[in-house]
Design a protein around this nucleic acid. Structure first.
Length: 513
RNA sequence: GGGGUAUUAGCUUAGCUGGUAGAGCAGCCGACUCUUAAUCGGCAGGUCGCAGGUUCGACCCCUGCAUACCCCA
């Protein structure tokens, strides 16, 4: 079947129009166009000015955008052009633009991109508009856009064809602009305070710095197995060893895990390390950074997230994990107890016990199971058990716990931070117990990283480190219910063309592995 | 991995207890030089996600598959 036969009726008509335009000497995919104003600039500058005054001044402007609505009236017509800033109405009269240009305008479809030069005026209903003197076709649209009134609703199409979503749903654009502004504000805040933005490899020979399954890839020339990074931590700490004392990296992290409203296989994190600081310094930095971004970008620290009122103004609540568990469940993990006693407590409270679970794992399970979802207002939970914190320094007074915190808002983890473990001998033991967990079947446990250990053996200053999930932060600040709403192109399952090609694809993957 | 819901024209959708699919927008032809979900007259557009099954007859019932969303682990 030829491509031509597959075209819908609407597409065929638009291709015929393309042909007609060319026959009349009009390039349907035009050239550069110099704009004097965006739609919003015109509305901002001239909306308040009186109709008569505008007519007297005869202000000429050039605008460009996608035609989103068209109302023909015989030898004249109105249309709305949409650019990144918004929409503005144009008024096209045959006696102003000439017969040939008007014929071209009549041939234009919704979705076409036009350039217009003309004069600002007010219609009799008071809408600030541009009366065209010249009208140019900048790009012909060969496919019909979704419906003008209801827009594009189908979530699958919205994610797969984000450009349509951006054209049709203005609040989507707002969300992604906000995302960009949040990142700008974050960088500015840190840069002004002497933090150095760095870039470290996304391909690692040993995936480290987090408990997660990696993606595996392969370098052909070196015939080397490589992993997509699951964290930036271990490289950034090497930089601290190297004497870069305040560093951060904003970058993509890859984790080979399921997909949900809160998880995408690739996401963006910021990790930050500061020499001679500890987790308490990082706590203050975290709340000040996030509150600053909120104020800077949105002008407020009070947010509504899916019906929850959240106040981001510091100082935020701080509570030890064991106290938080005690508060919610009444179970007290402070007294010394054996691993067996902890497991008994878990069984009593119907908490699933992972094989080989120790005291610290049980404490963590209790927290995740009972406490997490109750933490709506920003809360620093600190003092994580050493068993679940292989890269954090032990607490001086109670070595069962570490000097670590996680930030929770609306029941979700938003940040993870600790006083970094800088004792290479202790770090080696932590890796060794992680290896035991791996052998016991936990494929998220850390691998031994000799190169990183070697760097620690040269001496790393006491250091505070931080990780924030950028996507979740953007979700919170833009009231987005799903991570897919803050990712321009979330990962979607491949659409199978036919069953046969699907099987072939499967076989290809088998050979690789 | 388990459960639920959805998939009908380019888009947004209706479709009763099984009787052979209806609309709005967009589109096409015509009218219209201040319209704005423009209006008026006419026209066209459907593999009802895919593959089987039950039935005289399936958009509707059953099975499998695909994709998406939600909940649970």
């Amino acid at each position: 079947m030829s491509r031509q036969e597959e075209l819908s009726e609407l597409e065929q008509i638009r291709r015929e129009k393309l042909h007609t335009l060319r026959e009349n000497g009009i390039d349907p995919f035009g050239k550069r166009f110099e704009r004097s104003h965006t739609a919003k600039e015109i509305l901002d500058q001239y909306d308040e000015i009186e109709k008569e005054q505008l007519d007297e001044q005869g202000i000429e402007v050039s605008i460009a955008g996608r035609m989103m609505a068209k109302r023909g009236q015989g030898k004249a017509g109105f249309a709305h052009l949409q650019d990144q800033s918004g929409r503005i109405q144009i008024y096209v009269r045959q006696d102003q633009v000439g017969e040939q240009a008007y014929d071209m305008f009549k041939l234009c479809d919704i979705g076409d991109i036009l350039g217009v030069t003309g004069v600002i005026f007010k219609t009799k209903t008071g809408e600030t508009s541009v009366k065209a003197k010249e009208i140019t076709l900048l790009s012909k649209s060969l496919r019909p856009l979704p419906e003008k009134f209801h827009g594009l609703k189908d979530v699958e199409t919205r994610y797969r064809k984000r450009y349509l979503d951006l054209i049709m749903n203005p609040n989507v654009k707002d969300t992604f602009i906000a995302r960009s502004l949040i990142l700008q504000s974050m960088r500015r805040y840190l840069d002004e305070r002497g933090y150095l933005e760095v870039e470290t490899p996304t391909m690692h020979s040993i995936p480290g710095g987090a408990a997660a399954r990696p993606f595996i890839t392969h370098h052909n020339a070196l015939d080397m197995r490589l992993y997509m990074r699951i964290a930036t931590e271990l490289h950034l700490k090497r930089l601290i060893v190297g004497g870069l004392e305040k560093v951060y990296e904003i970058g993509r992290i890859f984790r080979n895990e399921g997909i949900s409203t809160r998880h995408n296989p690739e996401f963006t994190s910021i990790e930050l390390y500061e020499a001679y600081a500890d987790y308490k310094d990082i706590m203050r930095l975290t709340e000040e950074l996030i509150a600053h971004i909120a104020q800077d970008v949105f002008g407020t620290t009070l947010f509504d997230y899916q019906g929850h009122q959240v106040e981001l103004k510091p100082q935020w609540k701080r509570i030890h994990m064991v106290d938080a568990i005690k508060e919610v469940t009444g179970v007290d993990f402070w007294p010394q107890m054996s691993d067996e006693e902890a497991v008994e407590l878990a069984k009593k409270h119907n908490i699933p016990v992972p094989p080989g679970a120790k005291y610290g794992h049980i404490v963590n399970e209790f927290f995740e199971h009972f406490v997490e979802e109750t933490l709506i207002q920003p809360t620093f939970i600190y003092g994580h058990p050493v068993e679940v914190s292989p890269l954090a320094k032990k607490n001086e007074e109670d070595p069962r716990f570490t000097d670590r915190f996680e930030l929770f808002i609306v029941g979700r983890e938003h940040a993870n931070a600790f006083t970094e473990l800088n004792d290479p001998i202790d770090q080696r033991q932590r890796f060794e117990s992680q290896l035991l967990e791996r052998e016991a079947g936990n494929d998220e446990a850390h691998m031994m990283d000799e190169d990183f250990l070697e760097s620690l053996e040269y001496g790393m200053p006491p250091t505070g480190g931080l990780g924030i999930g950028i996507d979740r932060l953007v979700m919170l600040l833009t009231d987005s219910p799903s991570i897919r709403d803050v990712l321009l192109f979330p990962l979607m399952r491949e659409r199978t063309v036919s069953e046969q090609s699907d099987e072939e694809a499967d076989e290809g993957i088998m050979e690789e592995a």
